[in-house]
Design a binder for these strands. Structure first.
Lengths: 242, 242
DNA sequence: CAGTGGTCTAGACCACCGC
DNA sequence: CGGTGGTCTAGACCACTGC
């Protein structure tokens, strides 16, 4: 037996079907909430929950005192930046097969820039984790991660420390990274990490400086990720905030 | 008399105050919804609406069957990319005063790349609008906008066609741009528009290719915006999607 | 098992919009 | 003014979590 889904989600899916099906034309007004609630045999609030979801997804526009209108479908955009993904899954979603990646792990004293972001003591011990990812034998990503030793606590274990860092943190330390504040920039050609990726004349490189947070917004991990722009595309869906 | 705000927003603001005030510590569990609803003298659903808002803003974490927990405050990030702003307001928020901007407006036949994005006929008439923005006498932004003549309809008026394009569309054509799909990339040094901005050796340039939509997601405007990265910073708050 | 959040209802009143 | 969405209630039952 399949688990039954909440009825507001059921209603939402039905509405999506009707829209995709052309039962409701783009730009047209839906029947009033009261009518629709009766039609679906749910209460008005339940129907409204469904509409709220659709509104969040940009599939309908609700105008107070006027009505609810169908908007045209937006194409789904690939690996959108506002979603947080691991570099590994980015590589896979670009249709590449991750090749050899060289790593180095050292313990270094915390520099001022990182200590401010990670809110830990300057000079305290920080694990610095560097790696190059390759695809088809060519380097495509260079990343440097800074992880205060204190957040790992007793869990630090040099041996398991590879693969997806986010997975490592979750399974070994019980820390879930769910958010990151990312500054996106273009490194100079003279940047030594950038240079490791400048293989072809048509290559450009994007640098993501990312501060990763756990569920309750504690800063956990600071990283520099250099990504080749001829290999990866960066999309954002931007919305007007009222 | 001030207008009264809905009580769920009042409750939300009170909760924020209590959190900032330290009445609820970071990481601690809030009293149950039933208790809090009684405390605020509202129904449980109303209290829940307040909590939902806070959850969206990342200020609390709700765990089913367990409780609602306070998360630490996230710093507000400046001119975050997932918000849609006009270039003019970006310049102002960077603390710069917009100087002279040179413009050119021509009508050109639609090229394939734009026609696909704008879903209009190839070779149909498109208004091409170019401008350079300056600050302190130096160019900081180069932008090129493509606007199918048919979306303007009878409203096209060469004379008023300056200043904020988004404002122009709203006031003259009744079109509100509320969303954009943006591809962020690093142009090559050989790009002729990019070169117009490469003044200093430490300058790098970001290119935003943006397709702007109106309320019901009709593509309206396609633009290339070249922005100097030594002048502007680009932030994104990324979130794990479940 | 007890306690928590998740869903749902039926009805009420209000605020806004266009005519 | 009539019709629309926005808020609110009091109570109900369910699903999940941790002990």
């Amino acid at each position: 037996m399949k688990k039954e889904k909440p009825s507001y989600l059921y209603v939402k899916d039905e509405l999506v079907k009707k829209i995709e099906n052309g039962d409701f034309e783009v730009g047209s007004k839906l029947p009033s909430e009261i009518k629709m609630a009766k039609y679906f045999n749910v209460s008005r609030e339940t129907f409204r929950s469904a509409v709220k979801k659709l509104e969040q997804e940009g599939k309908v526009v609700v105008k107070r005192g006027v009505g609810t209108f169908v908007s045209s479908p937006l194409s789904t955009i690939p690996s959108s930046l506002e979603n947080l993904w691991s570099i590994g899954s980015l590589i896979r979603s670009a249709g590449l097969k991750e090749g050899e990646h060289r790593e180095s792990i050292t313990t270094v004293p915390c520099k001022k820039e990182w200590s401010e972001k990670l809110s830990c003591e300057p000079q305290s011990e920080v694990i610095k984790h560097e790696r190059i990812r390759t695809a088809d034998g060519e380097p495509v990503v260079y990343s440097i991660n800074f992880l205060p030793k204190k957040v790992l606590g007793a869990f630090f274990n040099n041996e398991n420390f590879s693969g997806s860092l986010l997975n490592y943190l979750k399974s070994n330390c019980g820390i879930s990274i769910v958010r990151a504040d990312t500054e996106l920039s273009v490194p100079l050609h003279t940047d030594k990490y950038c240079q490791k990726l400048l293989i072809h004349p048509s290559t450009t490189v994007v640098l993501l400086k990312q501060l990763h947070y756990d569920e309750i917004n504690r800063p956990i991990l600071y990283s520099y990720d250099y990504l080749r722009n001829d290999v990866f595309k960066f999309w954002i869906r931007r919305t007007l905030t009222n």
